[in-house]
Protein backbone atom coordinates (compact mmCIF):
# COMPACT_ATOMS: atom_id res chain seq x y z
CA UNK A 1 0.00 0.00 0.00
CA UNK A 2 1.90 3.08 -1.21
CA UNK A 3 0.99 6.49 0.14
CA UNK A 4 0.27 9.14 -2.52
CA UNK A 5 2.80 11.96 -2.79
CA UNK A 6 1.88 15.07 -0.76
CA UNK A 7 -0.29 17.45 -2.72
CA UNK A 8 0.48 21.08 -3.32
CA UNK A 9 -2.18 23.55 -2.18
CA UNK A 10 -3.36 24.07 -5.73
CA UNK A 11 -3.78 20.43 -6.47
CA UNK A 12 -5.47 19.82 -3.16
CA UNK A 13 -8.00 22.58 -3.82
CA UNK A 14 -8.70 21.07 -7.24
CA UNK A 15 -8.96 17.61 -5.74
CA UNK A 16 -11.35 18.94 -3.11
CA UNK A 17 -13.49 20.60 -5.76
CA UNK A 18 -13.52 17.45 -7.85
CA UNK A 19 -14.42 15.34 -4.87
CA UNK A 20 -17.23 17.78 -4.02
CA UNK A 21 -18.72 17.34 -7.49
CA UNK A 22 -18.37 13.54 -7.39
CA UNK A 23 -19.82 13.39 -3.87
CA UNK A 24 -22.66 15.62 -4.99
CA UNK A 25 -23.70 13.47 -7.95
CA UNK A 26 -23.23 10.25 -6.01
CA UNK A 27 -25.24 11.68 -3.14
CA UNK A 28 -28.07 12.71 -5.45
CA UNK A 29 -28.13 9.24 -6.97
CA UNK A 30 -28.15 7.57 -3.56
CA UNK A 31 -30.99 9.82 -2.37
CA UNK A 32 -33.08 9.05 -5.44
CA UNK A 33 -32.45 5.35 -5.04
CA UNK A 34 -33.42 5.47 -1.36
CA UNK A 35 -36.57 7.43 -2.23
CA UNK A 36 -37.60 4.87 -4.86
CA UNK A 37 -36.90 1.93 -2.55
CA UNK A 38 -38.93 3.66 0.16
CA UNK A 39 -41.88 4.02 -2.19
CA UNK A 40 -41.55 0.38 -3.25
CA UNK A 41 -41.53 -0.90 0.32
CA UNK A 42 -44.39 1.41 1.27
CA UNK A 43 -46.63 -0.88 -0.73
CA UNK A 44 -44.64 -4.11 -0.67
CA UNK A 45 -43.11 -4.18 2.78
CA UNK A 46 -43.55 -6.62 5.65
CA UNK A 47 -42.73 -4.31 8.56
CA UNK A 48 -44.59 -4.83 11.82
CA UNK A 49 -47.93 -3.08 12.13
CA UNK A 50 -48.00 0.04 14.23
CA UNK A 51 -44.43 1.10 13.49
CA UNK A 52 -45.66 4.08 11.47
CA UNK A 53 -48.05 5.14 14.22
CA UNK A 54 -45.21 4.85 16.72
CA UNK A 55 -42.97 7.07 14.60
CA UNK A 56 -45.78 9.57 14.07
CA UNK A 57 -46.24 9.80 17.81
CA UNK A 58 -42.49 10.27 18.28
CA UNK A 59 -42.35 13.06 15.71
CA UNK A 60 -45.33 14.89 17.15
CA UNK A 61 -44.29 14.40 20.72
CA UNK A 62 -40.73 15.53 20.07
CA UNK A 63 -41.38 18.49 17.87
CA UNK A 64 -44.78 20.06 18.54
CA UNK A 65 -43.78 22.20 21.51
CA UNK A 66 -40.40 23.08 20.02
CA UNK A 67 -41.99 24.20 16.76
CA UNK A 68 -44.72 26.11 18.55
CA UNK A 69 -42.04 27.93 20.55
CA UNK A 70 -39.78 28.85 17.63
CA UNK A 71 -42.65 29.70 15.31
CA UNK A 72 -44.17 31.80 18.07
CA UNK A 73 -40.99 33.85 18.21
CA UNK A 74 -40.82 34.05 14.42
CA UNK A 75 -44.37 35.40 14.33
CA UNK A 76 -43.51 38.20 16.73
CA UNK A 77 -40.24 39.05 14.98
CA UNK A 78 -41.65 39.14 11.48
CA UNK A 79 -44.69 41.21 12.26
CA UNK A 80 -42.47 43.65 14.12
CA UNK A 81 -39.84 43.83 11.38
CA UNK A 82 -42.30 44.21 8.53
CA UNK A 83 -44.30 46.83 10.38
CA UNK A 84 -41.11 48.81 11.02
CA UNK A 85 -40.25 48.48 7.34
CA UNK A 86 -43.73 49.59 6.33
CA UNK A 87 -43.64 52.48 8.81
CA UNK A 88 -40.75 54.07 6.91
CA UNK A 89 -42.95 54.28 3.81
CA UNK A 90 -46.51 54.82 5.00
CA UNK A 91 -47.48 54.48 8.64
CA UNK A 92 -50.68 52.61 7.83
CA UNK A 93 -50.70 49.24 9.53
CA UNK A 94 -54.15 48.03 8.52
CA UNK A 95 -52.86 45.60 5.90
CA UNK A 96 -50.04 44.12 8.02
CA UNK A 97 -52.22 41.24 9.15
CA UNK A 98 -53.48 40.42 5.68
CA UNK A 99 -50.00 40.37 4.14
CA UNK A 100 -48.62 38.41 7.08
CA UNK A 101 -51.38 35.81 6.74
CA UNK A 102 -50.58 35.27 3.08
CA UNK A 103 -46.84 35.03 3.72
CA UNK A 104 -47.38 32.63 6.60
CA UNK A 105 -49.51 30.20 4.60
CA UNK A 106 -47.42 30.39 1.48
CA UNK A 107 -43.90 30.55 2.80
CA UNK A 108 -43.05 30.96 6.46
CA UNK A 109 -45.21 28.28 8.03
CA UNK A 110 -44.02 25.41 5.87
CA UNK A 111 -40.42 26.54 5.35
CA UNK A 112 -39.35 27.80 8.77
CA UNK A 113 -41.39 25.00 10.34
CA UNK A 114 -39.66 22.41 8.18
CA UNK A 115 -36.22 23.88 8.92
CA UNK A 116 -36.97 23.44 12.61
CA UNK A 117 -38.26 19.93 11.99
CA UNK A 118 -35.08 19.09 10.12
CA UNK A 119 -33.11 20.19 13.14
CA UNK A 120 -35.21 18.38 15.67
CA UNK A 121 -36.65 15.34 13.90
CA UNK A 122 -34.05 14.89 11.16
CA UNK A 123 -31.18 14.89 13.63
CA UNK A 124 -33.06 12.41 15.79
CA UNK A 125 -33.73 10.01 12.92
CA UNK A 126 -30.13 10.14 11.74
CA UNK A 127 -28.75 9.63 15.24
CA UNK A 128 -31.02 6.66 15.86
CA UNK A 129 -30.34 4.91 12.59
CA UNK A 130 -26.62 5.68 12.66
CA UNK A 131 -26.36 4.14 16.14
CA UNK A 132 -28.10 1.05 14.78
CA UNK A 133 -25.63 0.89 11.90
CA UNK A 134 -22.46 1.19 13.96
CA UNK A 135 -23.69 -1.32 16.55
CA UNK A 136 -24.46 -3.78 13.72
CA UNK A 137 -28.21 -3.78 14.43
CA UNK A 138 -28.85 -3.04 10.75
CA UNK A 139 -26.76 -6.09 9.80
CA UNK A 140 -28.81 -8.16 12.22
CA UNK A 141 -31.99 -6.89 10.56
CA UNK A 142 -30.73 -7.84 7.13
CA UNK A 143 -29.69 -11.25 8.38
CA UNK A 144 -33.30 -11.85 9.42
CA UNK A 145 -34.60 -10.88 5.97
CA UNK A 146 -35.83 -7.56 7.34
CA UNK A 147 -34.84 -4.86 4.87
CA UNK A 148 -33.61 -1.76 6.74
CA UNK A 149 -35.45 0.48 4.28
CA UNK A 150 -38.69 -1.36 4.98
CA UNK A 151 -38.22 -1.52 8.74
CA UNK A 152 -36.54 1.78 9.48
CA UNK A 153 -37.07 4.24 6.64
CA UNK A 154 -40.64 3.59 5.52
CA UNK A 155 -42.31 4.14 8.93
CA UNK A 156 -40.38 7.38 9.39
CA UNK A 157 -41.17 8.48 5.86
CA UNK A 158 -44.92 7.91 6.15
CA UNK A 159 -45.08 9.37 9.64
CA UNK A 160 -43.18 12.44 8.54
CA UNK A 161 -45.42 12.99 5.50
CA UNK A 162 -48.45 13.26 7.76
CA UNK A 163 -46.93 14.83 10.83
CA UNK A 164 -45.04 17.58 9.01
CA UNK A 165 -48.35 18.91 7.76
CA UNK A 166 -49.97 18.59 11.18
CA UNK A 167 -47.13 20.23 13.06
CA UNK A 168 -46.74 22.97 10.45
CA UNK A 169 -50.43 23.87 10.66
CA UNK A 170 -50.36 23.87 14.46
CA UNK A 171 -47.22 25.97 14.73
CA UNK A 172 -48.40 28.37 12.03
CA UNK A 173 -51.52 28.98 14.10
CA UNK A 174 -49.28 29.83 17.05
CA UNK A 175 -47.20 32.13 14.85
CA UNK A 176 -50.35 33.85 13.62
CA UNK A 177 -51.53 34.41 17.19
CA UNK A 178 -48.20 35.79 18.44
CA UNK A 179 -48.05 38.00 15.35
CA UNK A 180 -51.48 39.39 16.13
CA UNK A 181 -50.51 40.08 19.73
CA UNK A 182 -47.33 41.87 18.63
CA UNK A 183 -49.23 43.99 16.13
CA UNK A 184 -51.70 44.93 18.84
CA UNK A 185 -49.15 45.80 21.50
CA UNK A 186 -46.49 47.48 19.37
CA UNK A 187 -48.55 49.10 16.61
CA UNK A 188 -52.09 49.28 18.00
CA UNK A 189 -53.57 47.07 15.29
CA UNK A 190 -56.86 45.66 16.59
CA UNK A 191 -57.35 41.90 16.38
CA UNK A 192 -60.33 42.17 14.03
CA UNK A 193 -58.28 44.34 11.66
CA UNK A 194 -55.30 41.98 11.86
CA UNK A 195 -57.38 38.84 11.28
CA UNK A 196 -57.90 39.67 7.64
CA UNK A 197 -57.52 36.61 5.43
CA UNK A 198 -58.75 38.28 2.22
CA UNK A 199 -55.33 37.93 0.58
CA UNK A 200 -55.09 34.18 1.19
CA UNK A 201 -56.38 32.53 -1.96
CA UNK A 202 -56.34 29.04 -3.40
CA UNK A 203 -52.86 29.50 -4.86
CA UNK A 204 -51.38 30.31 -1.46
CA UNK A 205 -52.94 27.29 0.20
CA UNK A 206 -51.89 25.01 -2.67
CA UNK A 207 -48.32 26.31 -2.57
CA UNK A 208 -48.14 25.92 1.20
CA UNK A 209 -49.55 22.39 1.03
CA UNK A 210 -47.17 21.35 -1.74
CA UNK A 211 -44.25 22.65 0.28
CA UNK A 212 -45.32 20.86 3.44
CA UNK A 213 -45.65 17.56 1.61
CA UNK A 214 -42.36 17.97 -0.24
CA UNK A 215 -40.50 18.85 2.98
CA UNK A 216 -42.24 16.04 4.82
CA UNK A 217 -40.84 13.62 2.26
CA UNK A 218 -37.40 15.21 2.01
CA UNK A 219 -36.54 15.32 5.71
CA UNK A 220 -36.79 11.58 6.45
CA UNK A 221 -35.16 10.58 3.14
CA UNK A 222 -32.16 12.88 3.70
CA UNK A 223 -31.84 12.02 7.38
CA UNK A 224 -32.23 8.27 6.97
CA UNK A 225 -29.75 8.33 4.10
CA UNK A 226 -27.16 9.99 6.35
CA UNK A 227 -27.96 7.55 9.14
CA UNK A 228 -27.63 4.47 6.94
CA UNK A 229 -24.33 5.73 5.50
CA UNK A 230 -22.80 6.05 8.97
CA UNK A 231 -19.56 4.23 9.71
CA UNK A 232 -16.90 4.24 12.35
CA UNK A 233 -18.14 4.19 15.92
CA UNK A 234 -19.28 7.16 17.94
CA UNK A 235 -17.49 9.66 15.70
CA UNK A 236 -19.47 8.23 12.80
CA UNK A 237 -22.77 8.75 14.58
CA UNK A 238 -21.84 12.36 15.23
CA UNK A 239 -20.86 12.92 11.61
CA UNK A 240 -24.08 11.32 10.35
CA UNK A 241 -26.24 13.46 12.60
CA UNK A 242 -24.48 16.63 11.50
CA UNK A 243 -24.74 15.67 7.87
CA UNK A 244 -28.46 14.96 8.27
CA UNK A 245 -29.21 18.43 9.61
CA UNK A 246 -27.23 20.09 6.84
CA UNK A 247 -28.57 17.93 4.02
CA UNK A 248 -32.21 18.22 5.14
CA UNK A 249 -31.92 21.99 5.54
CA UNK A 250 -30.32 22.36 2.13
CA UNK A 251 -33.01 20.17 0.59
CA UNK A 252 -35.69 22.36 2.13
CA UNK A 253 -34.14 25.57 0.84
CA UNK A 254 -33.63 24.20 -2.66
CA UNK A 255 -37.14 22.68 -2.79
CA UNK A 256 -38.55 25.95 -1.50
CA UNK A 257 -36.91 27.81 -4.35
CA UNK A 258 -38.23 25.48 -7.02
CA UNK A 259 -41.75 25.23 -5.62
CA UNK A 260 -41.97 28.99 -5.08
CA UNK A 261 -40.64 29.75 -8.53
CA UNK A 262 -42.94 27.14 -10.04
CA UNK A 263 -46.05 28.47 -8.37
CA UNK A 264 -45.10 32.04 -9.29
CA UNK A 265 -44.59 31.07 -12.91
CA UNK A 266 -47.90 29.23 -13.22
CA UNK A 267 -49.54 32.20 -11.55
CA UNK A 268 -50.78 30.61 -8.34
Amino acid sequence: METPPPLTTHESMLVKLGRLVIDGTEGARALTSLFLRTLWFTFKGSRPKGSTAHQAFEIGNNSASFLALTMGFIGMILVYQSAVQLGRLVPDYSMVGANYGELLVRELGPTIGALMLATRVGAGMAAEIASMVVTEQVDALRLCAADPVDFLVVPRFLASLVMTLVVVVLSSAVAYATGAITAFIAFDVRFDVFANLSLVDFGDVATGLTKSIAYGAAIPICSCHCGLEAHGGSAGVGRATTAAVVLSSLAIIVLNFFISAGSFLVGL
Binding site: S131, M132, V134, T135, E136, Q137, D139, A140, L143, C144, A145, A146
Partner: peptide, 28 residues
Protein backbone atom coordinates in the same frame (compact mmCIF):
# COMPACT_ATOMS: atom_id res chain seq x y z
CA UNK B 1 -29.79 -21.77 8.19
CA UNK B 2 -27.44 -19.15 9.60
CA UNK B 3 -27.34 -17.86 13.15
CA UNK B 4 -25.01 -14.99 13.88
CA UNK B 5 -23.90 -13.19 17.01
CA UNK B 6 -22.32 -9.83 16.26
CA UNK B 7 -19.29 -8.26 17.84
CA UNK B 8 -21.36 -5.29 19.05
CA UNK B 9 -24.24 -7.63 20.00
CA UNK B 10 -26.59 -5.73 17.66
CA UNK B 11 -29.48 -6.11 20.08
CA UNK B 12 -32.43 -3.93 19.08
CA UNK B 13 -32.68 -1.29 21.77
CA UNK B 14 -36.40 -0.73 21.37
CA UNK B 15 -37.36 -4.41 21.68
CA UNK B 16 -37.45 -6.41 24.90
CA UNK B 17 -35.04 -9.29 25.46
CA UNK B 18 -37.66 -11.87 24.51
CA UNK B 19 -38.68 -9.94 21.38
CA UNK B 20 -35.01 -9.67 20.45
CA UNK B 21 -34.43 -13.38 20.83
CA UNK B 22 -37.63 -14.25 18.98
CA UNK B 23 -36.90 -11.84 16.11
CA UNK B 24 -35.13 -14.26 13.73
CA UNK B 25 -37.65 -16.97 14.49
CA UNK B 26 -40.62 -14.76 13.70
CA UNK B 27 -39.04 -13.20 10.61
CA UNK B 28 -37.69 -16.35 9.00
Amino acid sequence: RIGMAFQNNALFDHLTVSENIAFPLRRL
